[in-house]
Design a protein around this nucleic acid. Structure first.
Lengths: 153, 153
DNA sequence: ACTTAAAGTATTGTTTACAATCTAATTGAA
DNA sequence: TTCAATTAGATTGTAAACAATACTTTAAGT
């Protein structure tokens, strides 16, 4: 029996409250650290991380309502409205009320926003070099994260 | 050949930029959603998520410097100083300069902070019911996340 | 048609998070 | 010893993130 592994009086009965027994903590910390890892690469193309994922959604679709964008990114209008206004000020997107439904705001890539795609292409490659997981491990992680995500929805 | 699966002119050559091909995105989104899932449970004991993980570290150690706390939580003084001041105002911790090294601030649980541990005990159990992963899956996810985290350090 | 409910954004207020910078205390090197 | 470099926190400024609320437009029910 390894005495050092025994619970101390401090922790006995409270194992569930140990940081290292929480799934949420490495999830939270890894997310933050990975986002931070992106920063130097994203600085080069003038995007924050949140702007980057918004641009990725638009590079796929070119034109999305704020609501659709929010559904894809798991963000609400309180986050997206100021974000998109900044991106509009940078000339990456336009924001226009839908004529069909005046409640909706349609976000559309500009030429400049579209062109940025070329430069963004290097980012995923640079990032994947920073994360030492095999293809299978990355896929396992990816699938488990999506299971969590779908359960939460 | 499934025509629908073929890359469109929009995405051809840009597969790496698809949101669904990014590992970072489900990591980011799942982290946010899980933290949000905690909110109602943490509201009951009057803590935010960040305060909760700070308390978990202190429930383990009772007394930690800001630096040590930052290392365990992957947070810097810019985040911790205002957080700990609020927790001090709530009576959960005390903050005192170390006598041995006046640069250090020692954060120590109060009786009230210690007592909160009892009520916090239910939180992990409630949370784990919200996340439909088996024991092995949770462990796999946990291990992969820690691999990512250690690589980033 | 009228009235209410619902939907889509925007706004406000609070809390994180972090880079950059500053200050005070400590350590180290010449 | 003495002064430069380092360390630990605090501060400032910026960007998210989200709850709560407000506002406008649309949809639904009667």
């Amino acid at each position: 029996m390894n005495e050092e592994r025994k619970a101390s009086s401090e922790t006995r009965g409270y194992e569930a409250l140990l940081l290292q027994n929480q799934l949420c903590f490495p999830l939270y910390a890894a997310s933050k650290e990975v986002v931070r890892l992106y920063k130097p690469f994203l600085d080069e193309i003038g995007l924050t991380y949140t702007q980057y994922i918004a641009m990725m959604a638009l590079w796929e679709s070119r034109s999305l309502s704020v609501k659709e964008l929010g559904e894809r990114l798991y963000l609400d209008s309180g986050t997206l409205t100021p974000l998109l206004k900044k991106m509009e000020a940078q000339g990456l997107v336009t924001r226009t009320r839908s004529v069909a439904d005046e409640r909706s705001v349609i976000v559309t890539l500009t030429g400049k926003g579209e062109a940025l795609k070329q430069r963004a292409l290097e980012v995923p490659a640079k990032m994947s070099k920073c994360i030492p997981l095999s293809q299978e491990e990355a896929k396992t992680l990816y699938d488990l994260l999506y299971r969590v995500l779908q359960a939460v929805e």
